[in-house]
Amino acid sequence: MRRFFALWTISILVLFALTGGAGAQEIAPSDTPAVGEAFDNAVSEAGGLSKRIIQTFLLVTVLSLAPGIAMMVTCLPFMLIVLSILRQGVGLQQAPPNMLIVSVAIFLTYFVMEPVFKEAWVTGVEPLLNGTLTEEVAFKAMMEPFRVFMDARVDSGAVDILRDARPVETAPATDGSTPLSLLVPAFVLSEIQRAFEIGFIVLLPFLVIDLLVASILMAMGMMMVPPAIVSLPFKVSFFVLTNGWVAVSGALVRGYS
């Protein structure tokens, strides 16, 4: 044990002497131009390293916010809300399951947004990877297709209400375009409002079936029988015969054409 402790102490001392000597050689004052040039190169390399660290941090942050960004600048909220209301109207709580509903909404969103994604890649992402555009210019070029898509779908009333809430910070840009800090929440609110409007129309046929079944049960004196249990087979049969999932999905996609 003592021998091990002595060897460990000698190793630490030798290592300290070597690193101390190297440090002394590095920080020793010198008036030669080579040392000054080497010091400037070290400073520039440190600055480049700091820039890369910041860029990596920003990239990781953006990737972590990617699901939220996808929800905010695409038609995913609209698809997801309408499909969820449709499942609720049929009366099936867990069929299809939530994961399947989200997956269908994601792929319908990709089907609708594919031209926007391609344009954003060609005008912004690809030139950035090739080094022909800076990060700031590439971001503006990449967001321009999404801006056009959101401008075509946003409700002007939502924009006016949010602009009145903060008139100074959300002033129009020099080119007259709506700032993204105002356009994105207005677009999301517009999509949610439109999704509930479509959901109301989707629920009407199932509501009629529920009312008919409830009236028939009341007329037959079967007031203790839950109408939802009796009407469920009729609603599922109606939905299957009309090819409901395909019809509703096609209508949702055509709404963006």
Results as ranks from 00 to 15, higher is better:
152 A>C: 00
2 R>E: 13
21 G>Y: 05
248 V>I: 15
86 L>W: 09
59 L>Q: 07
186 A>K: 04
135 E>W: 01
233 P>I: 01
67 P>K: 04
73 V>F: 14
98 N>P: 00
198 I>Y: 09
30 S>R: 05
165 A>Q: 13
15 L>H: 03
229 I>S: 15
165 A>T: 11
175 D>R: 07
188 V>K: 07
57 F>V: 14
153 R>F: 10
158 A>P: 01
20 G>V: 03
103 S>H: 07
174 T>K: 14
125 V>N: 04
179 P>D: 03
155 D>E: 11
85 I>N: 12
213 V>A: 07
184 V>S: 02
113 M>S: 01
124 G>P: 08
127 P>K: 02
255 G>P: 00
16 F>G: 12
106 I>N: 09
118 K>L: 07
8 W>D: 04
233 P>W: 01
229 I>H: 05
142 M>L: 12
146 F>A: 01
50 S>R: 12
191 E>S: 10
41 N>I: 12
158 A>K: 13
161 I>C: 02
193 Q>E: 13
106 I>K: 08
19 T>D: 10
173 A>G: 11
206 F>V: 06
47 G>I: 09
123 T>M: 05
133 L>F: 13
55 Q>G: 14
126 E>K: 10
65 L>S: 12
157 G>D: 15
149 F>D: 05
44 S>W: 05
79 M>Y: 08
60 V>G: 05
28 A>K: 15
106 I>G: 04
83 L>H: 13
166 R>H: 09
246 V>W: 13
256 Y>A: 03
19 T>C: 13
33 P>A: 13
199 G>M: 02
42 A>W: 05
185 P>W: 05
8 W>C: 07
210 D>W: 02
71 M>F: 10
59 L>M: 09
3 R>Y: 11
84 S>F: 08
202 V>N: 03
87 R>K: 10
72 M>F: 11
13 L>T: 05
62 V>C: 07
201 I>H: 13
15 L>I: 06
144 E>W: 05
72 M>T: 15
117 F>L: 14
102 V>M: 12
243 N>D: 14
97 P>T: 04
19 T>Q: 12
105 A>S: 15
119 E>T: 08
40 D>P: 02
117 F>G: 04
44 S>L: 13
104 V>C: 03
157 G>W: 01
15 L>W: 07
166 R>Q: 14
113 M>T: 09
208 V>C: 06
201 I>A: 14
244 G>E: 04
61 T>E: 08
63 L>S: 00
232 L>G: 00
13 L>G: 00
200 F>R: 15
96 P>M: 10
126 E>L: 10
112 V>A: 00
92 L>V: 03
82 V>Y: 00
93 Q>R: 12
7 L>W: 01
83 L>D: 01
126 E>P: 04
199 G>W: 05
226 P>R: 07
